[in-house]
C-alpha cells in the first residue's frame, strides 16, 4: 500500500497460469489473496479465440492443505472474442488433502463449452497464515525448546533495507506476529509465530543487524517440510 494505505496481506502479482495456445484460445492469469480470513483465487479470463465461450466451471485436484472452491466459478455472461473478464473464486480449506510436490502446488481443471483444460499454479504459503497466529509467549518459549534442533532451518534474506520495526509491521500485516524483540550486540532478534489453516505452528527468529542488508531467518516447526515455503513467503513479504 502507498502512504496512508493500510497494509494488507501480501498478494503476489498475477501471472499467466494457462496460455491461450494451450487452451484453444482461453487465457487465464491469476493470483491468490487473503482478506479478513477469506481466501480467494483472483483470475482474469481472456477469450483469444474466434468463437464465444460459455459454461465455465472449475475443479481442483486434492492438494496439501485441502484448498477447494467454496462455490461455483461465476462467469455470468458468455465471453466474446477479445473480451476479458475478472472472476473471483472464494476458497475453503476443508477439501481433500494429498501432499503435493512442491507443497503449495495446486492442480486445476477448468471447463467451458469448448473443452476441459488443466493447469498448475502455486500459492504463497502465507495465504494460509491465520489471523490468530500469535502464540502465547510462555508457550513459544516451551515450544522453541521442545522442537529438536534438527527441525530448525536457517535462511538468509538478502538485500533488505528495512529496520526491524518496519520488517515486523510488514510481516504482521501478513499474519506473522512478533512476540518478543531483544537487542544483543547491535543485533535485533525478533521472535515470531504464525499458524497455518491446518493448525501447524511455525516459530521464527529474525536477526536484523544495523547496517547489514542481509537478514537471518531461523524457522522451527514440527513439520519442517513447510520451512522452505515459509522462508519464500518471508522473502516475498519483506521485499514487496
Amino acid at each position: 500500500g502507498g502512504v496512508g494505505m493500510p497494509m494488507g496481506v501480501y498478494t503476489p502479482p498475477k501471472t499467466v497460469w494457462l496460455p491461450a495456445m494451450k487452451a484453444k484460445g482461453l487465457e487465464i492469469s491469476g493470483t491468490f489473496s487473503r482478506r479478513a480470513g477469506v481466501i480467494q483465487m483472483e483470475m482474469t479470463l481472456t477469450n483469444k479465440a474466434m468463437s464465444v465461450m460459455a459454461d465455465f466451471a472449475i475443479q481442483f485436484n486434492k492438494n496439501s492443505f485441502g484448498l477447494s472452491p467454496a462455490g461455483p466459478l461465476q462467469v455470468l455472461t458468455p465471453l466474446s472474442p477479445n473480451q476479458t473478464v475478472e472472476a473471483t473464486l472464494p476458497l475453503s480449506n476443508v477439501g481433500p488433502v494429498m501432499k503435493m510436490e512442491p507443497l503449495t502446488n495446486l492442480q486445476v481443471a477448468i471447463k467451458n463449452n469448448i473443452d476441459i483444460f488443466y493447469f498448475s499454479c502455486q500459492y504463497p504459503i502465507s495465504l494460509l497464515f491465520v489471523e490468530d497466529g500469535k502464540m502465547d509467549r510462555q508457550v513459544f518459549l516451551a515450544t522453541w525448546k521442545d522442537i529438536p534442533n534438527d527441525n530448525e532451518s536457517q535462511f538468509q534474506v538478502k538485500d533488505c533495507h528495512l529496520n526491524s520495526d518496519a520488517a515486523s509491521n510488514k510481516l504482521q500485516a501478513s499474519n506473522v506476529f512478533t512476540i518478543a524483540k531483544r537487542t544483543v550486540d547491535g543485533q535485533d532478534m525478533l521472535y515470531q509465530s504464525m499458524k497455518l489453516t491446518n493448525g501447524i505452528w511455525v516459530l521464527a527468529e529474525l536477526k536484523v543487524q544495523a547496517g547489514n542488508p542481509n537478514y537471518m531467518v531461523s524457522l522451527k516447526c514440527r513439520a519442517p517440510e513447510v520451512s522452505q515455503c515459509v522462508f519464500q513467503s518471508y522473502e516475498a513479504i519483506l521485499k514487496n
Partner: peptide
Amino acid sequence: EMEDGLDEAFSRLAESRTNP
C-alpha cells in the same frame, strides 16, 4: 512476576543464540 520471568527468558534465549 511471571511476566518478568518471561521477559528474562526471552533475553536469555536471544543471548544464547547470539553467543552460543
